[in-house]
Structures are given as structure tokens and as C-alpha cells.
Design a protein around this nucleic acid. Structure first.
Lengths: 154, 154
DNA sequence: CCAATCAGGACCTCTTTAGTCTTGATTGAC
DNA sequence: GTCAATCAAGACTAAAGAGGTCCTGATTGG
């Protein structure tokens, strides 16, 4: 099912909540309340997001978290990357890959392409877009896509 | 990491092996040997693929499996779907979704869009392409993608 | 000094996945 | 008709990973 962990989902919820008042400082507790993510989990995620450079932390009393950039410049791909590590659909989508199947691993390159396409899809969506109340309203798929043209023609 | 299970990976390997000689009957054992997937696992996957309508089974002596369509008309999305169920990145990417977060679930629609984009990426790649020895050789991403144009403009 | 808050782990539990095995049904060949 | 090869179906186990909690320490404002 191409599963994305719940943590990544929660993380975007937290980020979205912060995006509603960027440049303001939010406590972990407050964000947990607003997003209905349990407090310890929210704290954990915020630490990961901090490590990923997406938010910055302010310690001490009246401390909290704040977006490190404007929501327009934070992508969903980054959020997922910060929480769940690099985006890779299969084992051998990454570089190393000790997968030593001779013949069938011409496939490898193709997986890499697919992987990349997915990554681009995630990178194309910003936090600002996620936070927007009303999504694009067009009937046809707004995230549009035309890989067939280039892949099929051979 | 947007994980795709190993089974899906194995399944494409099996399908790719069959694609190298479509319209020919392959035994589960033979495919297992060629793909280095353990025999019981291969058998299990082939059953799933059969149920998904991607291959057809021939029972009895000299039985085996055969692609039910030409490799050009089988997509990676279908293979994954057959093995791991419907492709859905988050819980609420699917229709039902008892996720009852009022405010933050304007996000839901956006997830759905992302999900759809990923699905299209997978659907755009056929088994024939996976089986092809040499992948597209162009330097720029062959699976090309321009969602920004439509999503960003608002 | 005290209270609020983040930092960084250690830790546990539960679900999911991967993989194996068993039993039964079907079919072709001899 | 019998036998051997092969798929069908599902129960079962084991390992991995994810989700989630908690504790202890460091930092800062009042």
C-alpha cells in the first residue's frame, strides 16, 4: 500500500498548525492540543523536525517552536524526510544497494525513476498549500503528470 | 520513508521474469529460481497476482502461470495494488476515513491529491518498461512532472 | 531560586510483514 | 486408473518496525 507512517502524517499536522501563525512561538503542548496528537509524540516529532532544520526551538520559560522558514518554502517532502528518513520506495532505490541480482536488476534503474517521480510529487507541495483552507477546485487532477510521453516512447 | 513492502518488489521481479517470455507458461518453482525469491513466497505472490487478474494459472501437470495480458498493458500500480492492496499514502487518502479532526483536515484533500499524483506515477510505468534491459537514456528525469504550475498558482 | 520548556534517550508494546508449512484439489501422462 | 506434478487456500510462527510513553538533564525568564 505504499505506506507512509502515521508519524509523518502527524508531523504535517503539527507543521500545518504552526503555519497558521508562522513567526509565532508555539509550545509543544499547545500544538499537541490543537492537532490531537498526544503530547509525548508531538514533542518527539518536534525534536525531529528541529533536527531536520524545519523548525527552530527556543528553550526555557516561554520557549517553544517556530517555523524556520516561511510555509511557502517548506515542502511536504522535507517534512516526511525529517521524520522518516530519506524517501525511498524500495531497497535498491538508494545508491548503495547490495542487491546482487544480475539480470533482473536492470529493473533497478526503473525503480529509481519511479522513486524520483514520487519524490518530485511530494516536493511540489508546500506547507502553505497544505495549510490552505480550500484546495484547488479544478475538476481535473491539479497535480498533473505526464510521464507517458517520455517513458513510453521507445 | 514511504515504504513499499518487499513483497511488492518481489512481485515485480516475478512479473518481470514472466515478461521476458510472455505467453509462455512458467512454474512457480522456475520463477522462484530465476528471481531468487524463495519458493513458498513466490507461490504466495503468484496466487495474489492471480487473484488480481494479472496472471492466469493453469493447474495440473505442466501447469503454471502466464501473464494474462501483454506486458505493455500491465502497470506497476496494478502489481503493487494486487500484492499490497489499494495504494494509499495516508489513512485518510481513502474515501471513508473516520478521521474527525475538524480544522486540520482541510489537509485531507491535499493528501488525496498527493496520493493521486503518486498513483499516476506508478501507473505510468508498464511491466514492459520494467523488463526492458536498458532504461531511457536521457539526462533529465524521464518521468517528468510539473505539478507546480497548477498547484502553485493560487 | 523556581517554574516552564526543550533535549536526548531508554524503553515497552503492539501491529504488520515476511516467510513457512500443511492439506486438498486439479490435470496431464502413462 | 493411477500417479506425479502443480496450483489453491489458509493457518501459523517469528522477526521487525512503528508507535507511544517516560525519565533525567539542560536552559531560560521571572
Amino acid at each position: 500500500m505504499l505506506k507512509l507512517g502515521k508519524l509523518a502524517d502527524y508531523a504535517t499536522a503539527l507543521m500545518t498548525a504552526m503555519a497558521s501563525a508562522p513567526s509565532q512561538v508555539h509550545t509543544a503542548q499547545g500544538l499537541a492540543d490543537r492537532t490531537h496528537v498526544s503530547a509525548p509524540t508531538a514533542a518527539k516529532l518536534l525534536k525531529l523536525l528541529t533536527k531536520g532544520g524545519l523548525v527552530e526551538s527556543l528553550r526555557g520559560a516561554h520557549g517553544g517552536y517556530r517555523l524556520s522558514r516561511s510555509p511557502e518554502r517548506i515542502t511536504v517532502a522535507e517534512i516526511i524526510g525529517a521524520v522518516e528518513g530519506p524517501i525511498a520506495v524500495t531497497e535498491c532505490s538508494e545508491d548503495h544497494s547490495g542487491c546482487s541480482m544480475e539480470s533482473s536488476c536492470a529493473t533497478k534503474t526503473n525503480w529509481r525513476l519511479i522513486n524520483r517521480a514520487i519524490f518530485e510529487a511530494l516536493q511540489a507541495v508546500t506547507l502553505a498549500q497544505m495549510a490552505a483552507p480550500a484546495p484547488v477546485r479544478r475538476q481535473e487532477s491539479p497535480i498533473h503528470f505526464h510521464p507517458a510521453a517520455s517513458l513510453a516512447g521507445r
